[in-house]
């Protein structure tokens, strides 16, 4: 049996009386693309923050990349990658500088930084643009670069926060190809999104409603179970009853 990269057991976060995340339990595995879905205010962001070591859970258990979220948050940070929808690249630095910067803050040696930067530039085909400012790149390339940068320190699991909104379908495909490739190399992928068509690219998905995980399975099984044509419909059936309108 493979070791899970993320494992949670009754993980809970309360803010005063408000239960943002209520006893969620799930496991994800190396190479698995795990979709983490939910409406606005369902508790996705809070859950993800706990898993990234940015917020301490109220109760329950969780390990990420084998480290405990209560006691080893610094180790977790060293072993995960993170990419948000804003890409978190410095627009006023060049492609090269961005890569070197992120490699640097993860404490790679100079040798590693150089090798991996070269390799990455090669792979993305950005040789010509390496010395250009990131601001001048098209959206799709920024996205690919951001994803590659999130992987530069070879994390065991990478968190993607709504990664593909707004790009054209072809670029989006290329992006998913990169995700598949990373997954084929054994990296665990954790994607949050509220776009259902995106979720169908995932191996397994969970759907959060009002702080609880209401469904967790492969997209195909979920569609079968809810007798729905699309994930959109599955989600609609589940989330319609949501009481929270927070955010």
């Amino acid at each position: 049996m493979r070791e899970p990269v993320i494992k949670t057991e009754k993980l809970t976060k309360r803010f005063g009386d408000f239960v943002a995340v209520n006893e969620i339990s799930f496991e994800t595995y190396p190479g698995e693309i795990f979709g983490f879905l939910g409406a606005n205010g369902a508790g996705k962001t809070t859950a993800m923050r706990m898993l990234c070591g940015l917020s301490i859970p109220t109760s329950g258990k969780a390990t990420v990349a084998g480290f405990d979220v209560f006691t080893h948050r610094d180790d977790i940070k060293q072993n995960i990658g993170y990419m948000s929808q804003k890409f978190s690249l410095y627009e006023d630095l060049t492609v090269l500088e961005n890569i070197e910067f992120y490699a640097g803050i993860y404490g790679l040696t100079d040798r590693e930084i150089k090798d991996r930067t070269d390799e990455l530039i090669q792979k993305l085909g950005l040789q010509k643009e390496a010395k250009h400012l990131v601001a001048s790149l098209p959206l799709g390339w920024k996205q690919k670069l951001a994803f590659s940068v999130a992987l530069i320190h070879r994390p065991k699991v990478v968190f993607l926060d709504e990664p593909t909104s707004g790009v054209d379908p072809v670029t989006r495909r290329q992006f998913w190809n990169m995700i598949y490739e990373a997954s084929a190399n054994g990296v665990g992928i954790f994607v949050t999104t509220h776009y259902m068509d995106e979720s169908e690219y995932c191996h397994r998905i969970s759907i959060m409603v009002d702080g609880n995980i209401e469904a967790l399975d492969t997209p195909a099984n979920l569609k079968k179970k809810f007798e729905a044509d699309s994930m959109d419909e599955v989600f609609y059936q589940l989330a319609r009853g949501a009481k929270r309108q927070a955010d």
């Binding site: 939910g38 409406a39 606005n40 707004g166 509220h194 259902m196 959109d232 609609y236």
Partner: peptide, 10 residues
């Protein structure tokens, strides 16, 4: 509908 969840979009 950008940035709005599936239920609201529908």
């Amino acid at each position: 509908t950008t940035g709005v969840d599936a239920v609201s979009r529908k």
